[in-house]
Nucleic acid binder design. Structure first.
Lengths: 333, 333
DNA sequence: ATTTAGCACTCTCGAATATAGAGTGCCAAT
DNA sequence: ATTGGCACTCTATATTCGAGAGTGCTAAAT
């Protein structure tokens, strides 16, 4: 049986032969029989032998078939979920929560954990405030309807009185409150061209900040933990591979595009080996699950490990963590 | 001469023998003479041979003597400094600036770059603002004299009117403006016990935020880049060592304590191999320089690499980067 | 007195060779 | 359909061996 072989290979990373399989597996079959079956499986493309006299190793197709049809994933039992929940730390602030979730994923699975920052799709302009700091330094603060805050130091060409600042923020707040941030940006740009107001420096900055929030929402980012766990696996122990992998983690682009694909497909998503399409991840698999706030998918989390990871154990963990993180974020709303 | 030997070893990481040295070095000496000198150097503890018939390799003491007395470090020429300056990107905001400096260090030296976050020693309470978001959600914003901003969502047990919020912030601002943050915390704590005011929830939160800023200032942190560069060096290519090293980078504690030592000694500071006192860094050296804002040391930056790094090249780079970063941060003030 | 050439010796590294063991495929028997 | 047997293949590991690099020492040379 393919399942037994893959189970075995996942357990100890060695090519597995007919002998071992007949001895240790529950099946009561002689090595010869198993050899026959294995040669069938090889013809189907589910396993290969690295060389003529070593056991067989699952191919990507083999893994795929394995996870798609052979694997029966039981959801995590209540006790484990509770354990996870307590380790996550519901009371934490958003950013710490994400850190904690990442660490949790990597800690529990002994793989690399990854969590994208949640994105707020429909951020509206809520208000802007200007606080005087010193003579010609003003602190600009922009708040969105999501409670996201962006602040920026503004150098003004001349000292502004608190009243002036108040006037400026009143003006902008009245004009833009409740509008979509992207609309704000457009309007502001027009406004600037039509009438050069006295407050232009500040309006300019407000626009820049709106711009930056928009950008921050669009450009996704992720945090990661436990990369070093991957060094334990001898199939990745080649320095070159490892370096490429870690570089990819730092560059983020490729990983992000994969995570992005995961946000669109719903539910658990699994990339096995070359399926990712990125060469650096050829020998890695990725198991991801989107997490939701307010019934809306706002991000993805998951783990990255070698293709021979213990899918049956990892999948429920990723799934549960996604739910828990979503729930925890919901409470913040 | 020790200098030539170390230069040579730094260049290509191979134990260097008398033959090579007499041929390639500028000295006009026969291998035999060099052998004599080398055996003297070995007795002095500056070099050792890994085994009887391999060349000699510098010891920690050797490196130490080398950098302390043999090395003449020329400050970077103006052109290179200018190049660095432009790559740093003066116009960036503080956090991006730090990122950029880290990346720059690692990029230019092909080692791992590290920069501690600047600490503001004397942060004073500047003002606090409460912005209503929805019914019983309030956004609290705390600003320090350094322009540092901290914001926090506050859930109130009942809806607060804008006027109430205004009143609360006015009260706190009047009470605390210009005071030291730690004093604010103390006073607030007292206040809370003496009279349970209507605004206590908000004051409590303001206190928490002050607390958090204080904590953030005390607990240092650093950012790092180019860790993967270290994988190029075969003396570190052992997976176990590499894993320990990367784990240490993630844990941060040990590295932080080293960086902390660097902030106290003034000027360039160099730890060679075991000098650090941490086993994971046995085969690494660290070259650091503090950076200043307003004439005051606020942080440290540097690089981490193998003991056989090109000190003569790295030291001026670290030095220059520290100055440039300081200068760039100064402009923000 | 310092430098040099010569020489015997040591030790590692790499290639080449041998050997054990795991696994296969196929055939004939059950 | 399953199984035992058997010859065959191929890798991984150990072993051997020689080349080369480097050393230390001694005696000669400057």
């Amino acid at each position: 049986m393919l399942k037994v072989l893959i189970d075995r290979y996942i357990r100890d990373g060695q090519p597995v032969g007919s002998r071992t399989l007949s001895r240790d597996a529950g099946l009561d079959l002689s090595p010869a029989t198993i050899r026959n079956v294995m040669s069938d499986l090889e013809e189907l493309g589910f396993i290969t032998s690295p060389h003529t006299s070593a056991g067989r190793v699952p191919t990507v197709a083999g893994y795929r078939f394995f996870v798609d049809t052979l694997l029966n994933v039981k959801p995590l039992d209540a006790k484990s979920v509770e354990q996870l929940r307590s380790e996550l730390g519901i009371e934490l602030a958003t950013s710490e929560l994400l850190e904690s979730a990442t660490g949790l994923l990597s800690g529990v699975t002994a793989l690399a954990g990854v969590v994208t920052l949640p994105r707020h799709e429909h951020a509206l302009f809520s208000r802007v405030e200007f606080l005087p700091l010193s003579d010609n330094r003003v602190l600009g603060i922009l708040v969105t309807s999501e409670g996201e805050v962006q602040n920026r130091m503004i150098m003004t060409e001349r000292a502004c009185s608190p009243a002036e600042l108040q006037q400026a923020s009143n003006y902008l707040n009245e004009l833009f409150a409740g509008k979509d941030l992207s609309a704000v940006r457009g309007t502001l740009l027009n406004e600037m061209q039509e009438a050069r107001s006295t407050m232009n420096r500040m309006m300019m900055t407000a626009m820049q900040m709106a711009d930056q929030i928009l950008e921050k929402n669009q450009s996704e980012d992720y945090i990661m933990a436990g990369q070093t766990n991957l060094m334990e696996f001898h199939e990745l122990c080649d320095i070159d591979k490892l370096r490429n992998l870690f570089d990819a983690f730092n560059k983020k682009r490729e990983i992000l595009s994969l995570l992005d694909q995961c946000v669109h497909g719903d539910g658990i998503q699994i990339f096995i080996g070359e399926e990712s399409g990125y060469q650096t991840l050829d020998e890695c698999s990725m198991v991801t699950a989107p997490y939701q706030v307010d019934g809306q998918i706002v991000g993805v989390l998951g783990v990255i490990g070698p293709t021979r990871m213990a899918y049956d154990r990892v999948i429920p963990i990723v799934d549960a963590t996604a739910r828990l993180l979503g729930a925890a974020l919901n409470q913040k709303e």
